[in-house]
Design a protein around this nucleic acid. Structure first.
Lengths: 191, 191
DNA sequence: CGCCTTCCATACGGTACCGTATGGAAACGG
DNA sequence: CCGTTTCCATACGGTACCGTATGGAAGGCG
């Protein structure tokens, strides 16, 4: 096994960068080759065409995201609110990963295979959040609603262009997450 | 002025359909011509190239969205909560418009000119929502947070793939909006 | 060293699109 | 009914990409 001068992983990394920058349509083999300083000659030795590269990109992403989550579950301490707060902090950092994820989310709207992968990831995250909210919210409908609000807050803010009257987006995000962690249950609010 | 067999508006409509289906990269002139049953010959008489079509698409969308909002402001009655509830209902319908908007949101991530148009639209909607929330929420930070939560809820749910434990997405959306309209202010929740 | 596997460069044919040029058909206006 | 404007078809050259084929360089190994 001679050392690959441009191994599979480099193609995948570069492809993910292109995905983040311009979506799946920007993942062009000849363009990647130019960025890597080689020609596409070696690509077709490593991969079975463009579609295979896209698949492996998604495989890599799916693994990384899961690892990221697990890593955070394990390294966590404190109660449910503290864990959620740490999760929110994590979601706010990792800007490159957020771009990749946003590109994949949009991609999934047009490609059922991508949508299925995304569903696996989203469902796993939702399950985790549900288990945390369940520790201080009684009503199941409200748990589900709060999970949806959290999830869409971070996903949606990537696609939002509005300003916030002098406030930074990060500040408003923090206010919103505090709201989601501090508000009383629906049952307590009604009497 | 002879009657245009394929007037500008038909090109734009078809382009918006293509945008909703596959993003801006799917707006291909020769493909649109095929879908319209003509050749691209007439296109370059009407338009000054592909970029001009994309611009006019966005012009059309921006006008329509603003009209849609104004129409709803005018036709509204009741208090702020009722108006917001009606706004949420509107946001949940119009599936084709939602697809176009999602495509534009993703587009704006890569194109600054598109981002500026989107910022105009988003800011106008945000201003309207702020004025409504201000009628039953005291704290300015919380108003901003709730506006962001509402906005990202509807935007983000378009990009979400998760399931909801047997509940429909529409039901969870309804629970979430109720939460945003019924929760007490931060100041009231703290003592 | 000589060989053989691994990796890449080069060259090719094919596809899909852009934008232009030019002729012709279609619908008026006098 | 005839010319003029309006709209479209056709044909062309150019670009960018895909995937394949084939030769060659580079490094491990007997």
């Amino acid at each position: 096994m001679a050392h690959a001068r441009t191994p599979r992983s480099r193609w995948i990394d570069e492809a993910l960068r292109a995905l983040a920058a311009g979506g799946p349509d920007a993942v062009r083999i000849e363009a990647l080759a130019r960025d890597l300083g080689v020609t596409k000659g070696g690509f077709y030795w490593h991969f079975d065409g463009r579609h295979a590269l896209l698949d492996e990109m998604l495989d890599t992403w799916e693994r990384n995201v899961v690892d990221q989550v697990i890593e955070h579950i394990e390294g966590a301490g404190g109660d449910a609110r503290a864990k959620l707060a740490r999760l929110f902090t994590l979601a706010s950092s990792n800007k490159q990963l957020a771009k990749i994820e946003s590109a994949i989310r949009n991609w999934a709207r047009h490609d059922e295979a991508v949508a299925e992968r995304l569903r696996r990831v989203d469902n796993r995250r939702m399950d985790y959040m549900r288990s945390l909210f369940a520790q201080f919210v009684a009503d199941d409908d409200e748990i589900e609603a709060r999970c949806l609000l959290v999830f869409t807050l971070f996903v949606g803010s990537q696609f939002l262009a509005s300003d916030h009257r002098g406030r930074s987006r990060a500040d408003v995000l923090a206010s919103a997450t505090n709201l989601l962690l501090d508000i009383p249950t629906h049952a307590e609010a009604q009497p």
